[in-house]
Design a protein around this nucleic acid. Structure first.
Lengths: 261, 261
DNA sequence: TCAAAAGTGTTAATTCTACACCCATGT
DNA sequence: ACATGGGTGTAGAATTAACACTTTTGA
């Protein structure tokens, strides 16, 4: 039997790169990693939030090659006995400190052969929505992590690594689309929120103004969307009539929400 | 340096199963496939069509273990220099003989650690829609391939291998949902079709009747959905006034189609 | 009392639904 | 002629969009 192996060192760990086995005793089809290559499987996450009335996405500046200094989505290897969803939740928690709670769902999987110049990497991309929070914890590595306005990414102001420009485009599209037929908007808000805050989410993500009066009516009519509380926002929090508080309802898929004008 | 390898034979080819490398000269972190396991990456496809007014899905009966004799989605390994989309298109073509043309899109990726008892397999699931055609070509292997009514699958009448019951459920849901805001319905029809045929698609997939008059109006109003031909269906093809023929329009995403009642 | 924000009422425009009716063809 | 499926017209219902108006607070 002949065995040929090539290893690669990525992030100080060995990664199997090429592998070939020929059985000389019972010659059958050999195992050749050029034919059945060991894929690396990663997850990448597009984490959205609203910062200063800007629809924003978390990006990380890469510290090493390839694509040194370019920006990228947070992500990492899927561990051996970990589901993809679990890996994504772990990455989300590592980057933002947020456990479960918020919205996290699979976006799409990207597996073009040359998407990572080092080896064959298939990446399951996820997207998440977190309530506005302070600066993202920069993570255990001292990498720069930043919430960046989606507007600036779409304007091409960030040089993104790998195929992340493509992934980010898909994620933005999905997030905007899903506002229209799901209760995802509430994930941008804190646990308790007013109808104005919720409306601001739609206006910010879609970049259009919505009629406050009509919005309030529709939101409350919508079965399972909102859970009204018997309290108003603390009156001292601004001038004007104090707004009623709500929590997110139980329904994930909601019927007739708001149309993107 | 110490190397430990376990190989597995799947479908008459070796698959790398376990792999461990320790560098005894420069002892660093060893490569251990229990930590960075080589994932196998496959694609599985849910191929939908309409057979005898039944919304149907292509299933294949497995010839070998595991899950011998259970039904499964067609699928296979992603080749080394193949994109995921390419692999899916290849599988679709192998199973149905259909090249490109029809609708094919990624559904979701499934990667639970124990989903395949043999090894760690991550499967990118796709879904496709093909026009009604004769019996599916049984493929190069002499496996049984069959279009099965979705109704019967939902009733649990088929024992599905791996996590394919789960995948199939997601695919059905997606197909039904996407009728509502895309031009996918035309993919169920032949290249030229009448409004009745198109309406029958909606009625069959959703399992509800639609008002023919209103349907025809909406379909034709809908920008980019249909391309009217100057011909009618051959009058001899039935009694009644011959219907006008249409082709699919150019738009993939259409604005205000038909609501699932 | 005034400004500001929350929330309610109301009306005209639009869209949708249901069904009546006309059209073109085979028998 | 008439049965059958294709296609148009239309009136009433339902929904929507726009804006005027009332309520509750801070200053």
């Amino acid at each position: 039997m002949t065995i040929t192996i090539t290893l690669l060192i990525v992030n100080s760990t060995f990664i199997l790169y090429y592998f070939h086995v020929t059985d000389t005793v019972n010659p059958g089809k050999p195992y050749d990693s050029a034919e059945f290559p060991p894929f690396a499987v990663t997850v990448d996450i597009a984490i959205f939030t609203i910062v200063d009335e800007e629809f924003s996405l978390l990006l990380i500046q890469r510290g090493g090659d390839p694509f040194k200094d370019a920006w990228a989505l947070p992500g990492g290897f899927v561990q051996p006995d970990e589901d993809l969803d679990t890996a994504a939740a772990r990455e989300l928690s590592e980057e933002t400190g947020i456990d479960s709670a918020s919205h996290l769902e699979q976006l799409k999987t990207y597996g073009a052969p040359e998407r990572d110049p080092r080896m064959r990497v298939v990446s399951a991309a996820y997207w998440a929505v977190v309530p506005r929070l302070g600066a993202p914890s920069a993570g255990s590595d001292a990498r720069r992590a930043l919430f960046v306005p989606v507007r600036e990414i779409e304007a091409g102001q960030y040089d993104l690594a790998f195929d992340h420009q493509h992934i980010v485009g898909d994620a933005i599209e999905r997030a905007r689309a899903k506002l229209e037929y799901s209760a995802i908007a509430t994930s941008f808000c804190d646990r308790e929120f007013t109808l104005s805050e919720l409306r601001k989410v739609y206006e910010t993500v879609w970049g259009v103004p919505l009629e406050p009066a009509n919005f309030a009516r529709k939101a409350q009519q919508c079965e399972g969307f909102l859970q009204p509380l018997e309290r108003t926002i603390s009156p001292s929090s601004g001038t004007g009539r104090p707004a009623q508080l709500f929590r997110a309802g139980t329904a994930n898929e909601i019927q007739p929400p708001f149309k993107r004008p």
